[in-house]
Amino acid sequence: MKVVIVYLHGKRIGEKLFNYMFLYIRMDPIVILKRVHKTFLLGRRAVPALRGVNLDVERGEFLAIMGPSGCGKTTLLNLVGMLDKPTEGRVVVKGRDATSMSDDLASDLRLREVGFVFQNFNLIPNMTVLENVQLPMRFAYMNRIRMESRARMLLNAVGLEDRMEHLPSELSGGEQQRVSIARALANDPSILILDEPTGELDSEMGHEIISLLKRLNKKSKKTMIMASHDPSIASYADRVVRMLDGKVVG
């Protein structure tokens, strides 16, 4: 039995029991940040990274966050990805309050609902491309045959069908980023968090990757939140949010 809590416009309107069935009624934004503050302690010095950020991300939206280095883009993405908790304010992801969520629950939600794509790919170096993509599925206890076919399908989708048995070090930067995208999509998440996904790539490869992401966004209606400092990359997004000194400025 699963308990499903139903929200409408951010308000809890009831809960029902279903047999092995998920039912989500999502009329509200998929990500809500309300007056979010994040302060880091460097020794005894408090360094504010986010200062009262308010942001809603709609389901299926491709959002780009732009801003100079140190403006708080990565911190914001970490909060949305439930890798960190705000010092103050609320972060709601898919109707769940990430602020008060336990670490295990946050991990489980991240495993199934959030996919990360990093600037420097962060693949497990001594696992093959296929194994890297299968990794999140393994931890989600997916059936072996399904896991195999899904990983192959995803690698096919990112154009790496002939590189499956290679190690990451044998691939180019663009190829590694494709693997990273395939891995992020492994458990079919609703949200993709892209932290400077083209930062390590040359311009041509960068546009190729962002086109791929855009196609995915259109095709699968996945919500994508991307941090970038490159306006030409950000221009692929449906909406661009600018940040400066820990605040959303436009």
């Binding site: 990805g81 670490d103 295990d104 991990s107 495993l111 990360f116 990794l135 891995r183």
Partner: peptide
């Protein structure tokens, strides 16, 4: 260490 961070970002629990 860094890979642990990556694994955690993929949604793998502390216990795992």
């Amino acid at each position: 260490g860094f890979e642990i961070g990556v694994l955690r970002s993929l949604g793998i629990r502390k216990s795992a």
